[in-house]
Design a protein around this nucleic acid. Structure first.
Ligand SMILES: [Zn+2]
Ligand SMILES: [Zn+2]
Ligand SMILES: [Zn+2]
Ligand SMILES: [Zn+2]
Lengths: 134, 134
DNA sequence: TATGCACCCTATAGCAGCTATAGGGTCAAG
DNA sequence: CTTGACCCTATAGCTGCTATAGGGTGCATA
């Protein structure tokens, strides 16, 4: 492909994203549909690369696709207040903190149960006992 | 329904599980298909209630359906060693610990990013900056 | 006896966020 | 002119449910 135009494979390699994922993001409205070559290949430019990098980074930080879409939209309104961005990020952080708390409670319970297993027969196993009713 | 037989709704109420979820567990091989009444209603017994309670408890502890199936199978071999049960539980605990570690790293990064937002315009927002490439 | 209503049945589709086929077309090198 | 790497669309699959749609059952009440 011509220089300053990237194929979907180029974009995939550069951003460490699977080709199918990029097409999926396009369908999902996270990436604009790029121009096409004569042979109907997607022809990306630097702006698409930047956009996809943004998406990848946001996904790595755990933002949902809905949040990413919102963040992309807001990021384009350069002269507006960033209050909404802040809200999304804080909400997401709260969500992460909540998940950590949930998992810590779970881990504690599991550790306790696992620690009681005396490695005998199933009939005596404290793990099974902990899972069984009454 | 006759006493010592439970309808799916009874089971759902008793175990705080949705009716559809119980049917799903049956399809997924977690619960044995119960006998049917003349009107083709599922007719559960105490053993089914115990089984579903076990499943619920294991799910609450975060075990995957695959793990739960395995645990159910192993739990039935009362005179065998509980070593495999132990392995599954320890693997699962390790998985939970790993998720916690991942989320803590994520949370730290997010907290750092969110803490830098100066509440100005989008153009100056450190959150957007943190998400943008180069 | 009829009607209403709560409950049950199956089958199928939908959710997130991809990933993996199947069944083709394009394009440059040898 | 063929090989092989790449691209295209469409569709199905994954986990663990949940929510319809379109019926049938069973019991109480008018
Ligand atoms: Zn979020
Ligand atoms: Zn044990
Ligand atoms: Zn596990
Ligand atoms: Zn900001």
């Amino acid at each position: 492909m011509d220089h300053d135009v990237l194929s979907i494979g180029d974009l995939a390699r550069t951003t460490d994203t699977k080709v199918e994922t990029i097409r999926y993001y396009e369908r999902a409205g996270l990436l604009p549909a790029p121009a096409r070559t004569a042979g109907n290949y997607r022809a990306y430019r630097a702006e698409h690369l930047a956009r996809l990098s943004f998406v990848r980074r946001a996904r790595d930080l755990g933002f949902s696709l809905d949040h990413v879409r919102e963040l992309l939209r807001l990021a384009d309104q350069k002269d507006q207040s960033c209050a909404e961005i802040d809200v999304i990020a804080r909400l997401h952080l709260a969500e992460v903190d909540r998940k950590i708390a949930d998992l810590m409670a779970l881990g504690g319970e599991l550790r306790q149960i696992v620690g009681q297993c005396g490695h005998g027969t199933v009939a005596e196993c404290r793990i099974i006992e902990a899972l069984s009713p009454n």
